[in-house]
């Protein structure tokens, strides 16, 4: 199994997509952090409260820190591509000739997808830390791990980003068409999940989706102006995420094992 994971890691790092995804993730997180930092504590002209808490508060640290979850979609796309490029370029033939026990191939891909997710999450967190810690200290804030919930948010980012790798692999195995898989992943993450997690009326459904469950795991407790969302408890979010991970793993395996490769 170690050899198979090594093969999957090589497949990913011998093509260019991974660093393109990493770069785009860093740009996105950078833009997000710039926005969160620049508009921290700024009150609007109508005299209402600030949309974002001030930089010296624990709430701001928590909000800024959670932008490290921006890598999920890119890990999911990599997961989709890990499966669909095998069909697109027919390398799946060589893969299954070398390893005819296909479940082992899928297992290796799932492990690799999770590892890549972990890697992306670590990179994201390093960048976030490099911006947020100086920003809050320079603004006169104190860095309190317990009040800003940095460990919990970080753990949530690590776990959820990893699992998005599995989601991508499951989706890829299901659709097998690369473009359809990537479009599906983007639509899912940016349209469907955004709607269900942003609009309070839809929260009863949204909290059961992977995005909502990831939020629950991070226990982000900041009013974004649309009302305080009612997430699942953190452990519930973890269970839901793992459930999705298992579901997608089963989907990936079931759709691949008996298929004729022609």
């Amino acid at each position: 199994m170690i050899g198979l994971v090594k093969a999957e890691v090589r497949k990913l790092f011998t093509t260019r997509l991974w660093w393109i995804m990493l770069l785009v993730m860093l740009v996105l997180i950078g833009v997000n952090l710039t926005f969160i930092t620049a508009f921290a504590g700024v009150t609007n002209e109508a005299g209402g409260g600030a949309a974002l808490p001030a930089r010296d508060t624990a709430e701001w640290v928590q909000t800024a820190w959670s932008s490290g979850s921006g890598g999920s979609i890119f890990v999911m796309i990599l997961g989709v591509v890990m499966i669909t490029s095998e069909y697109r370029y027919q390398t799946v033939t060589g893969t299954f000739l070398t390893t005819p026990r296909r479940r082992r191939v899928i297992a290796a891909k799932l492990i690799t997808g999770a590892l890549v997710g972990l890697l992306f999450a670590v990179v994201a967190l390093v960048v976030v830390a490099a911006v947020v810690i100086p920003a809050t200290l320079l603004s006169g804030g104190e860095l309190s791990l317990s009040e800003s919930r940095i460990p919990q948010v970080s753990l949530g980012i690590l776990v959820s980003t990893s699992l998005y790798g599995l989601f991508g692999i499951g989706l890829g195995a299901l659709v097998r068409n690369q473009i359809a898989g990537i479009v599906g992943a983007v639509v899912w993450a940016y349209v469907i999940e955004s709607i269900f997690t942003a609009i309070p009326v839809l929260h009863p459904v949204g909290k059961w989706l992977p995005g909502g469950a990831a939020q629950a795991l991070m226990s982000i407790d900041v009013d974004t102006g649309l009302g305080r969302p009612e997430w699942l408890p953190a452990w519930g979010g973890a269970l839901v995420l793992i459930g999705y991970g298992l579901l997608f793993a089963v989907v990936a395996s079931a759709t691949t094992v008996r298929r004729d490769i022609t």
Binding site: A7, T14, T98
Partner: peptide, 19 residues
Amino acid sequence: SFHPGRTALDHLRILCAAA
């Protein structure tokens, strides 16, 4: 059945690792 963006050696090294 090759990924066009991968080198010949890398293609074989992947199969070596898997086997």
